[in-house]
Write a protein that binds this DNA or RNA. Sequence first.
RNA 1: GCGCCUGUAGCUCAGCUGGAUAGAGCAACGGACUUCUAAUCCGUAGGUCGCAGGUUCGAAUCCUGCCAGGCGUACCA
Length: 593
Amino acid sequence: MDSGQLKESILTQIEHAAEKTFGTSPDGLNLVYPPGVDMGDFACGCFPMAKQYRRSPNDIALKIAKNIPSGEIIQKAEASGPYINIKVSNAVLFGEICSEIIKKQEKFCTPNTSPKKRVMVEYLSPNTNKPLHLGHLRNGALGMAVANILMAAGHHVVKANLINNRGVHICKSMLAWQRWGNDTSPKSEGIKGDHFVGKWYVKYAQEAEKDPGLETEVQKMLQRWEAGDPEIVKLWKMMNDWVYEGFSETYKKFGLNFDVFYYESDTYKLGKDIIAKGLEKQIFQKILRDNGAGENVVFHLPVEKFGLEKNGNPKKITVLRDDGTSLYMTQDIGTAILKATDHNLDRSIYVVGSEQVHHFQCLFEILKAFEYPWADGCYHLSYGMVYLPEGKMKSREGKIVDADDLIEEIENLAAQEICRRNEENPLSEQELKYRKQIIGQGAIKFYLLRVRAMQDIHFDPQESISFDGFTGPYCQYAYARISGILRNAENLGLTAAYGDSNLLGNDEELQLIRHLVRFPEEFEISVNDLTPSRLAVHIFNTAKAFNQFYNKHQVIHADTKELAKARLLLIKAAGTALKTGLNLIGIDVLERM
RNA sequence: GCGCCUGUAGCUCAGCUGGAUAGAGCAACGGACUUCUAAUCCGUAGGUCGCAGGUUCGAAUCCUGCCAGGCGUACCA
């Protein structure tokens, strides 16, 4: 019996009791959790039934509770004000829930009846002119977590990375290298490829301040690129390859992976045919530009949703310039269609910062106007800014936290801590490297995922590298402790056992099992709302419940062998839950820290 | 101007499909290591849930208005 079935069974019994008491089956039956574990394991608030039965919730609770018989599952039902508190027999609560978790392992949250949908999660989508920064890490952590969560829920997920590898900004670093690069390369300079290219991007910005003429040079270069000038294309390819190589190293370090890459260089012209079709179908209109130079193709946004312009006209958005050149919107329309047809998508999730909410609202509106069946499945998963103590990150001003630097810094901190704890038996270099990667990554990802996506993050370097409190390493540590106990138990010939679960039931054990019971429903919420933060918080609370238990009670050295075995079952399930949860948000666990 | 987002403890945030005394972490102070890893645990202190109305038996949660900050506001991405 898993926690879902347990709740189902309790609800049924309450329903029967209500029917027996009042003659009709109750409205708004619900199951919540009492504030303290001493009050019971589940509770049912009787407010919704008040109208139906024409009695006070308190009275209803009292009468229904009396009609809930004690049995194998429900040990006791007791009214407490407007609530019916349910105490489940400890044998069932601990035995059934834990053995089910252990049996199902990482699938213990996966619903049996999951509508399998084809979902694309597009995330990261970097420019190839500079290295990744902290904002990308937030995006990456979110994207991976959401993809994992959807996969665990039974969906078919395609992780996509749309690489912005063309445009003026790309030409800037190309121009700078061409002028001042002296044929150096990442290899010759011993610099990671993306950082090397980023260096030339910065160089361009510096030089352009002194020499405004560079601006036209860059424009010329872009035109040559678009014309397919072999020299420029060759330069572009070479420098992009350097960046890709650098990126893939960072992806690997941060545990990001993708099933498909889309390159803007392949897709930037894609939307144009659709624009033409949209004109034919009168979805789009041609409108004279403000400067009278020519006619842009625009889309009029639905007034009900977007309101009117100051002049009283519907708001509009340009989808193609008068000179026929593409815009961000042009290619996004094309790419959306390409994605949907390539992968036969039901849903398409864009993990992109909240500064682009308007853009995506417009894009989705356009797709709907074309009546694509999948248009309703498009969703912009937006997230807030990452602020540094000094203010918003601005790459132009150099106020950024470089992704590679941050990862390295935190890994080094982890290494210090690991070494401190293993002074007597120093680890091999390989083992140290392995552990610091997992802990470092866990720290950063958890820090970025623990708050709601919409919430801006005020990045505090000090706090982010801390391993205390509400952090990834705290959760990893709880898991490592559990692993340690299980290892020791095995050496002593003790194994987790179902049979003696009725021996459990102190406050700490009840607190811990409650978190395990709630795990699947917290998972479900994070699936439905696409909120990994919800899961992160629950993982932390579970880890805390374990630590509280651990500090107060012995497992291996419990009073009796039977109690030890029962507790082993409990913590084994807790370990499974912690590992599963952490993996879902992209964080690995360690058997030893 | 308009739209969206945010406003909860000194700081960073949970809780927001209304329901039992508003929770965590950090920082501060005081305790707990001969004991399964102290990257832990316990305790103390800290809150007019931005403000004002409204709906309701009941509001941090829903509605309206206001205030503050952020982001955006066709022909950048």
